[in-house]
Simulated assay, not measured.
Amino acid sequence: MATIKDIARKCKVSTSTVSKALNGYRDIGEEKREEIKKAAIELGYLPLDGRKAEKSKKTYNIGVLFSTLFDYGLRNEYFAHILAAFKEKAAIKGYDITFIEHNMGKRRMSYLEHCRYRNFDGVFIVCADFAEAEVIELVNSLIPIVTIDQVFNEAISVLSDNYDGMRQLTQYIIDCGHKRIAYIHGNKSSVTHNRLVGFYNTMKENELSIPEEYLVEGIYRNAEVCEELAKHLIRLSGPPTCIIAPDDYAALGVMNCVRKMGLKVPEDISVAGYDGISVSQAIEPRLTTVKQDTDKIGSEAARQLINLIESPMMTSLDSVCLEVELIKGGTVKRI
């Protein structure tokens, strides 16, 4: 592991100069300070005692955890809007954002180590495997945390009203005359659970049964997987008249499946999505879906996190639930 002496040797300065530069002393020129910080990153320097975690002053820098393991990418419209709104709100309050990585120069570090190294005032977890040990370690730390679409007792969670959104969508499909409704739901999470409860309860309230084969686990924002799952549903001896996809991207996969099988949406089979992304309203027919206010999610997450950073004793670790909007497109047929 690199030491202050290694950095001093690389930059041809004294160890005291390195220490002052890394701790923000003003008697070190900006150019030299940046040179030393860059060298520290390249060498993978990390304070051995983790003392940066004990902050004496704010850095006005927020860490953003966005795992690329899910292949969503920053260009994904849902996350892009949330991140843009979060950044705008944080900037107004004087905060910068930095993405959290595993590698710091040649050294691999955990999410928590990176946060301590960067001395983040707080962390916004946008997309991650919430069952991963490193993520749980970060959430359980003393760093202020805000998450979206996942509830933790140790963090503030900002999410849409997934129960009510699925309840509205399911009731609309039933009101259109459908009784055989299949649901390709997402992988296990609090979001999936609440949507499933909304689906189950609405079907039960309308005295409609749910065949076991009509409930299929898919993958969020994966059109290819949902296309294959839809093919299986349509080929059942008693196929559904409507398929609800876990999200709009997945719904596009379901619609592709219908077309490839020589059928039409909604004449032969109806399709619904979730999220309300712009592309879902640009296709023909327009997708019936539930719109989440991504701009509101992002700005509210920033507001809550900054409140937690600046006024921790006046900010409770609660879940913030935002309203959703049913969009009645043209992909659900009236029977």
Rank of each mutant, 00 (worst) to 15 (best):
I269G: 04
I244D: 04
E207Q: 10
A245N: 02
L263K: 13
D248Y: 05
F199Y: 10
V279D: 14
S237Y: 11
Y172L: 12
A245E: 00
T241H: 03
Y274K: 08
E228R: 15
E207I: 08
E207Y: 08
L236R: 07
E267T: 08
N187P: 06
L196F: 05
E227W: 10
P239L: 10
L263P: 08
E217K: 10
T288S: 07
P246C: 09
A282I: 14
N187Y: 10
I244P: 00
H178N: 05
P266K: 03
H185S: 07
A245M: 05
S189M: 08
N194G: 01
R286T: 12
E267G: 11
E227Y: 14
Y183G: 01
P285D: 12
D247E: 08
I184S: 01
D175V: 07
P285A: 10
V258L: 15
V197S: 09
C257T: 07
S190K: 11
S278K: 09
P211R: 06
P285N: 08
I277P: 02
A272I: 00
Y172E: 12
D275Q: 09
D248H: 09
M255T: 06
L208Q: 06
Y214P: 01
L252Y: 08
P239C: 09
K231T: 14
V216K: 04
E205W: 00
S237N: 14
R221E: 13
G186K: 02
Y249H: 09
G218K: 01
S237H: 13
S189P: 04
N194F: 11
C242N: 00
D275L: 10
D293M: 09
A182V: 00
L208F: 03
R286Y: 12
I174G: 01
V225T: 15
Y183I: 02
E228N: 15
H193D: 14
R221D: 13
R195F: 05
K264L: 13
D293C: 08
A230R: 00
E213Y: 11
E284S: 15
P266I: 03
Y274H: 06
V279R: 13
T192M: 10
D268Q: 07
I174K: 03
I219H: 12
G177Q: 08
P239I: 05
G273V: 03
Y220W: 10
A230D: 01
C176F: 01
C226D: 15
D275P: 05
K231R: 15
I234E: 02
E217F: 04
G273I: 03
S190W: 09
M203T: 01
L215F: 00
K204F: 05
A245L: 00
V216A: 07
K179F: 04
D293K: 08
D247S: 06
E267N: 14
V290C: 11
Y183N: 02
T241N: 07
I210N: 01
E224S: 14
